[in-house]
């Protein structure tokens, strides 16, 4: 255990020395890539894609959608600093393009995108056919510990328009 501790300590010291050489103090998880990493999540009706694009303006980003694929293109242009005597760049610039296939059809007309504080968020509704459905299990209720069927509510009250929506039709 002691050797692990001293190994950690010497690694820590090495990192610190490297950092000092580059004038930075301390350590951390670096993030400098230009092609953006994507976070994607979904609920029953919507897919949401988020990308970090600091320094991009709206006009620097292009979003294309086909039936189940989203493509994001962009370019971050370095503004050459006038009169700079020396520079050290860690941030990346240039063009990128990323495509993602979701495997479920998306409704291209319903896609919306926002860019705020360098974070791009794209919201895409799934087509009605692709939405997750809740399937009611039919059949005999098991006898025993369960309350008799008479005590269960009959059916949930029907809201206007619900009948025309196939996924929420439960009658």
């Amino acid at each position: 255990m002691l050797s692990t501790m001293s190994m950690l300590r010497s690694f820590d010291e090495l990192s610190r020395r490297l950092d000092r050489a580059f004038e930075s103090v301390g350590q951390g998880v670096a993030r400098t890539q230009v092609a953006p990493a994507l976070n994607i999540w979904q609920d029953a009706e919507t897919l949401t894609v988020e990308a970090e694009l600091p320094g991009f303006r709206r006009e620097d980003i292009e979003i294309l959608a086909t039936h189940d694929t989203l493509t994001i293109r962009g370019e971050r242009v370095r503004q050459d600093p006038q009169g700079a005597e020396a520079a050290r760049y860690e941030r990346s610039f240039g063009r990128f393009e990323r495509s993602v296939s979701f495997g479920v059809p998306i409704d291209p007309d319903g896609i919306s995108a926002s860019l705020r504080d360098g974070v791009l968020r794209i919201t895409m509704p799934k087509t009605p056919e692709a939405r997750a459905r809740r399937i009611e299990v039919t059949g005999e209720l098991p006898t025993g510990t369960n309350p008799p069927p008479a005590e269960l509510p009959e059916t949930s009250p029907k809201r206007a328009g619900e009948a025309s929506n196939p996924e929420s039709s439960r009658t």
Partner: peptide, 12 residues
């Protein structure tokens, strides 16, 4: 906590 990328530029 992430360590952000940085550019360092020197002017006169």
């Amino acid at each position: 906590t992430y360590r952000p990328g940085a550019d360092f530029i020197e002017f006169s």
